[in-house]
Computed example of a mutant assay.
Amino acid sequence: MLTVLVLVGRERATDLISRIESIPEVCVLSHTHDTSLALARARVLLPDALVIDVSAASSGDADTVVHRARGLGLPSELIVHADGHGPPDGLVRRLTRLARDQHAV
């Protein structure tokens, strides 16, 4: 089971979380719109993947958020997501691939 923590704006949370939870091999451990809270939870929960939805207005400056997440030095896969950039099902495909790769190990 691939565990995921999601940083997403309130207005997009329902849609994005439901898309992620549609993947049987994936479990959303936590989600929040607050950058500091998301990074604190990542340090404690150690998810397999940290999804940062940069299209969310409340996630702040995308470059800063991604830099802070990388600076944690966590083993989590960092996935930067923005609707409208890349294929519409790209996030689902990437998480599915990560879950299957994890299961194969």
Rank of each mutant, 00 (worst) to 15 (best):
T64P: 02
E77K: 11
R10L: 10
D83V: 02
R97T: 06
L78K: 06
E25V: 05
P87E: 13
A99C: 07
E25L: 06
H33G: 14
D89Q: 03
G60P: 00
R70G: 10
T3M: 10
S58Y: 04
D83R: 11
G84H: 01
R41Q: 15
I20C: 00
E21D: 08
E21M: 05
S59P: 00
R43H: 07
D101Q: 13
A99Y: 02
V6Y: 00
C27R: 15
R19E: 06
L29D: 12
R68D: 14
D15I: 10
A56Q: 06
D48T: 04
T14C: 02
V105P: 05
I20G: 01
R93W: 01
G84R: 02
D89Y: 00
M1I: 11
V6R: 00
I17V: 15
L45I: 07
C27S: 15
V8A: 03
D89H: 00
I52K: 01
R19F: 02
G90W: 01
D15N: 06
P47H: 09
A56H: 03
S59H: 10
I79S: 01
S18R: 12
H81Y: 04
V80L: 06
D34Q: 13
R93Y: 02
Q102C: 05
Q102S: 11
L37M: 15
G71S: 10
A57I: 09
G90H: 03
I52M: 01
L37R: 15
L45N: 08
L2T: 09
V65T: 15
T32E: 11
A49G: 07
G73N: 12
V44I: 14
S22K: 03
D61V: 05
L78S: 11
V44Q: 14
R43G: 14
R43S: 12
S59I: 15
G90V: 03
E11K: 11
A57F: 10
D53E: 05
A49T: 08
G90T: 06
H33C: 13
I17E: 05
H81W: 03
A69L: 06
I20D: 02
H33N: 12
V65M: 10
L7T: 04
L45K: 13
L2Y: 07
T64E: 15
D34T: 12
R70C: 13
R100N: 08
P24C: 04
P87M: 03
H81K: 01
H103Q: 13
E25T: 13
L74I: 11
A57D: 13
P47K: 11
L72K: 10
R43M: 09
P88T: 02
V44F: 11
V105L: 13
S58L: 10
S76Y: 09
D48N: 09
L37V: 14
A38D: 05
R10K: 14
R43Y: 03
D34H: 14
D53G: 06
I52F: 00
V80M: 06
R97M: 07
S59K: 07
L78Q: 09
L29R: 13
A62M: 07
A13N: 05
R94I: 01
L45P: 01
V66S: 10
G71D: 08
E21T: 15
A56R: 00
H85Q: 12
S76I: 05
A82C: 07
A49Q: 02
D63P: 01
V65Q: 06
L72H: 07
L50F: 03
